[in-house]
């Protein structure tokens, strides 16, 4: 891949153009409201991690107890485990969704079919996730459809136990649940790629693979990044699949926070969340530094102007 994949050309922009269609009040106004709704509450919660809770009451005395117990109880491990599973799943979904998004946007010519597929991807959001997941247990369980089918066919003698209540089961159950959020942004960005580009690429003698690598991929990066965020974020908060399919052996972040809050242990929940945000920020930083030469994240979402 000798040719730089993205590296947006240095943008020339005149003062006058920058002002086109711009309301000067929007960004400051948004930042003020957002600070009130998001930043301030979060800062307060971080401050809470340095207090203690005794018998369901917050003791407003500075203390590091919440932080210390995070490590003595092994609670911080859930942050690492959650991140590991979330990243694996995001990679799997990207692998499934990128080719599919491309096909859906460019390969699928029938508008009704396209609409139907997008509908199929939307419907799961309307349905209660617990009831969707609990059904898997009847399929994967030791007396479930797969095991009894395999035993009936004589492939196996005893039921495969790890089909359910294992990390495998959790990953398996997540495939469907977190697919749509990866597809949507990728599909959207693919739809926006002008067919002329692809035609021109072919006219210049590029094979489909070359067009993919040199034309489609660079143009699709904002959509792919959005897809990764859209998928990774809900995955970090996943609790239905780990609870129902992991059999409690896959203890993830959401559960741990929930358990702490049940005893009104705001400090513990706050400390744990701070650890998560720190880990995510660290990952993001590494990603930006690693790809700095190839890709300018800060300007990824800047309007094209050449």
């Amino acid at each position: 891949m000798a040719i730089s994949t993205a590296a947006a050309p240095r943008r020339y922009r005149s003062l006058q153009l920058g002002r086109l269609g711009r309301l000067p009040i929007v960004i400051p106004g948004f930042l003020v409201v957002w600070s009130l709704m998001v930043v301030l509450p979060l800062l307060v919660v971080v401050a809470f991690s340095f207090f203690q809770v005794k018998y369901y009451k917050v003791v407003y005395q500075p203390s590091l107890d919440a932080w210390i117990s995070l490590f003595t109880s092994g609670r911080w491990l859930v942050a690492v485990r959650t991140l590991r599973i979330a990243l694996t799943m995001t990679a799997i979904e990207l692998f499934l969704a990128f080719p599919f998004g491309l096909w859906l946007a460019k390969g699928c010519r029938s508008v009704p079919l396209k609409a139907f597929i997008i509908t199929l991807l939307t419907i799961p959001f309307f349905l209660d996730p617990s009831s969707r997941t609990i059904v898997w247990r009847a399929i994967l369980g030791s007396g479930g459809l797969i095991n009894s089918g395999l035993m009936h066919l004589g492939v196996i003698n005893a039921p495969i136990e790890w089909l359910l209540y294992s990390e495998f089961a959790v990953h398996f159950g997540m495939i469907g649940s977190y697919f749509p959020t990866m597809v949507f942004p990728i599909f959207m960005i693919m739809s926006l790629i002008d067919d002329e580009y692809l035609q021109a690429s072919a006219d210049l003698g590029a094979s489909p693979g070359q067009t993919l690598v040199h034309v489609i991929m660079p143009l699709a990066i904002p959509g792919v990044m959005a897809g990764i965020i859209f998928t990774l974020v809900p995955l970090m908060a996943a609790f239905v699949e780990p609870q129902m399919l992991g059999g409690g052996f896959v203890n993830l972040l959401g559960d741990s926070v929930d358990s702490a809050l049940r005893e009104l242990k705001y400090p513990t929940a706050a400390a744990l969340s701070t650890v998560v945000v720190a880990i995510l920020a660290f990952c993001l930083l590494v990603l930006i530094l690693m790809t700095r030469k190839r890709f300018d994240f800060a300007n990824m979402f800047t309007a094209t102007h050449r």
Partner: peptide, 26 residues
């Protein structure tokens, strides 16, 4: 591999697999 035109079909199949993973339980 890059000249192969079956990529569209592969993309379609991957997606239909994922959609099946959604709709089997439903």
């Amino acid at each position: 591999l890059s000249g192969w035109s079956g990529w569209g079909r592969v993309g379609m199949c991957l997606g239909f697999f994922a959609i099946a993973m959604i709709y089997v339980p439903i």
